[in-house]
Design a protein around this nucleic acid. Structure first.
Length: 707
DNA sequence: GCTTAGGTTTCG
């Protein structure tokens, strides 16, 4: 009756649940007619209330979150119609009994981990203004149903937890009707619930409770002053939480996985390097030297391997209870040819869940990730992709390519070219908008013409490692019967060390002993030094008493300043005597053939972004790159002069800091072809072919408008 | 339908 009737009729919908109070029970005057209940309820005046409870609407991705629907509803129905409220028990008032709802500040937590039973288990400890600390145990099959806790100080709201007594303490255990909301615990941050629940109740009272807990907790001192430690602040032997981005990962063995991460800061201690095979690495197998110097290698053990396997390069993570260990001992699973450096800071995530040990993915929109992205973006030079990262981006170059052009086709605009079917040759007149890699030495690759795979040129640090690992076995070494063996003093500052040299008897008998030596026990530096004395140096090692070649990660041959590499996949390498009878010049081909090494070819590979007035286009400069620059890739690997000539050409085509107007127009021949990208999808690629870089005779530019 | 874990550092 009255105002209540009016408000109620506006608020209620068919299907709603209503709860009435303050009514009087009377006899129904219409019972004979409608055959309904003989009594009715009369609601009238200020003491009567009727509560309308809306059933949750079906999930609809386009609709407002449940919170907003709730607040819109309560505004609409005014004081007389309220949604039912949940009640929350103070942690100090808990008694063993039926399920309750609680709020609390997280003082300890373990990420959900696989229990021995059927579920994942989360352990957390929460407290509130009553200062009672309560342990909570959550068992759920689905990870997303667990409280989404990132750090100590987060605030949780738990529904459907049952207080149990265990060893004279009250604990909360998840029971039926369980749901959890988690909030950032930092005063001033947005109050946004993290939950997987599709609908949940959340109103101004809840917001108030969260804010009260935040400000109370901030004065309690149990929140860590700095929530996590950066690589720049880490000290040896410390346990710490690390917020970082995953760059690459590689399995080591069944109980260990390697995560390569960075957090945008530089660790003051030397970082452990772990050498793994490139083909088992997910993500780039190597990075630019600058980037490598800020990448931490983290070894993840035992139960954490499973969660680490789910991670993808690029993910933002927090690793809890990571341990910094100075001076690595041993890394499992590495073969004898793989080196582990000592006296470097290693990071281990040990097995078990003690102290909350674990890994968790951080969502992109969390404040921690936003901050991390900001720091990483500020690292100078990172805008540039490193060599192997670029290999990931580029599609595999084609194995065959039609590259002949009579240069008699009419030039086309880029927009027109893009609409053409692949498999043709086109002429374009374009400017160079940008190119990769900016560091031109990264354009050098090693290519196997047999299996058509491409490999990075390893840096000296990696090669150094192979040499030092190889010299570790200093036991007796019986040389092959064809060899004459002796020793030479190591050059430079290592007077007390003798290096093993083995010569071909045949070559010695011909008076050609300087033309080829097998050198054992040298460092990379010593090998380079001796390369000025001997025309060909093949580094060898002792392996179980027998003479063997080094791992093919390192050059198998040093010829003056040039180094030659072999394909790991296609070589069947062994120490053998080259046949020098009638061979005038012993070169890399002669040595490679004798040793059973499939010689890798140095190649140049670049990506150029072209533009004209209609469009832009990414093209590769690869098969014809040596012609284009009139430089042999092999020379570019060893000669500064050759590198300079490429550098000058690129600077001319794309002056650093120059405007578009300053870039010369180029007449290019482009071959288009189909290639599979990393996902196996066909895509059209373009390569510059049959084109030679020449400078115009004077400073006059070509006509910028070919049309 | 009511087990799992029940914080407390690997040993690489």
């Amino acid at each position: 009756m009255g105002a209540l009737a009016k408000e109620f009729s506006q608020a209620v919908n068919q299907g709603d649940v209503v709860v009435a109070s303050g009514f009087t029970v009377g006899k129904s005057p219409t019972v004979n007619k409608d055959k309904l209940h003989p009594c009715n309820l009369l609601l009238s005046g200020d003491d009567a209330y009727i509560y309308v409870s809306r059933l949750p609407t079906p999930p609809d991705p386009g609709s407002q979150p449940a919170v907003k629907r709730g607040s819109a509803l309560s505004a609409q129905v005014s004081r007389t119609t309220k949604a039912p409220k949940y009640t929350y028990v103070r942690l100090g008032d808990l008694k063993a009994g039926p399920a309750v709802n609680v709020y609390g500040v997280v003082t300890f937590f373990k990420q959900p981990y696989k229990s021995r039973g059927t579920d994942f288990c989360s352990i957390l400890k929460i407290t509130d203004q009553s200062k009672k600390e309560i342990l909570c145990k959550v068992f759920c099959k689905k990870l997303e149903d667990h409280p989404n806790i990132f750090q100590i100080g987060d605030i949780v709201r738990l529904h459907g937890v049952k207080p149990h007594s265990y060893r004279n303490c009250i604990e909360l255990v998840k029971t039926f009707g369980f749901s959890a909301l988690t909030f950032d615990g930092v005063v001033g941050r947005p109050v946004e619930p993290r939950t997987s629940s599709r609908s949940f109740h959340f109103d101004q009272d809840d917001r108030r409770v969260v804010e009260e807990l935040r400000s109370w907790a901030s004065g309690q001192g149990f929140l860590p002053a700095v929530s996590t430690i950066t690589l720049s602040a880490v000290e040896p032997k410390q346990y710490f939480d690390l917020t970082c981005q995953l760059l690459a990962k590689a399995p080591i063995d069944t109980t260990c996985i390697l995560l390569r991460v960075w957090d945008g800061t530089r660790c003051p201690y030397k970082l452990l390097k772990v050498i793994v095979e490139p083909d088992v690495t997910e993500g780039p197998s190597s990075f630019s030297a600058e980037k490598e110097s800020v990448i931490a290698n983290i070894l993840i053990y035992d139960n954490h391997v499973e969660s680490a396997k789910q991670l993808k390069p690029g993910d933002f993570l927090r690793i809890y209870n990571l341990r910094a260990i100075p001076g690595s001992s041993k890394v499992p699973g590495l073969t004898s040819t793989q080196a582990v450096e000592v006296d470097h800071m290693a990071f281990h995530l040990h097995g078990g869940t003690a102290f909350g040990r674990g890994i968790r993915l951080l969502p992109e929109d969390s404040p921690e990730v936003q901050e991390l992205k900001r720091v990483i973006a500020a690292i100078p030079g990172d805008e540039e992709l490193s060599d192997s990262e670029m290999m990931e981006v580029w599609s595999t170059p084609p194995e065959s390519l039609e590259r002949t052009c009579g240069h008699d086709v009419q030039p086309v605009m880029l927009s027109q070219l893009k609409r053409s079917e692949p498999g043709r040759v086109h002429h374009v007149r374009v400017q160079l908008r940008s190119y990769e890699p900016l560091r031109l030495h990264q354009a050098l690759k090693l290519y196997c013409s047999k299996c058509t795979t491409m490999r990075e040129v390893p840096d000296d640090e990696v090669v150094d490692g192979v040499f030092s690992e190889a010299s570790r076995d200093s036991g007796p070494c019986s040389p092959p019967t064809w060899a004459l063996s002796g020793q030479v003093d190591a050059p430079r500052d290592t007077p007390n060390r003798a290096l093993g040299v083995h010569l071909s008897t045949q070559l010695v008998s011909e008076g050609r002993s300087k033309e080829l030596v097998f050198l054992r026990g040298s460092t990379l530096e010593e090998t380079c030094h001796l390369a000025s004395t001997y025309q060909n140096i093949v580094p060898v090692r002792s392996s179980g008493g027998q003479m063997d070649l080094l791992d093919l990660s390192a050059p198998f041959l040093f010829r003056g300043r040039k180094r030659y590499y072999g394909c790991k996949r296609c070589s069947e390498a062994a120490v053998r005597e080259p046949c020098a009878v009638g061979v005038e010049l012993i070169d890399e081909k002669v040595v490679a053939e004798a040793l059973g090494v499939q010689l890798l070819q140095f190649v140049l590979l670049m990506k150029l972004e072209l533009q004209d007035s209609t469009d832009t286009l990414d093209v590769f400069l690869w098969r014809d790159a040596e012609n284009f620059f009139a430089v042999a890739a092999e020379d570019a690997a060893a000669s500064q002069e050759a590198q300079n000539s490429i550098h000058q050409a690129m600077n001319f085509l794309c002056p650093p800091g120059g405007s578009t107007g300053e870039r010369p127009w180029m007449d290019l021949c482009l071959a288009s072809y189909e290639a599979k990208d990393n996902g196996g999808q066909n895509q059209t690629c373009y390569q510059i072919c049959q084109t030679i870089f020449t400078r115009p005779p004077s400073s006059t530019r070509s006509n910028p408008n070919p049309a």
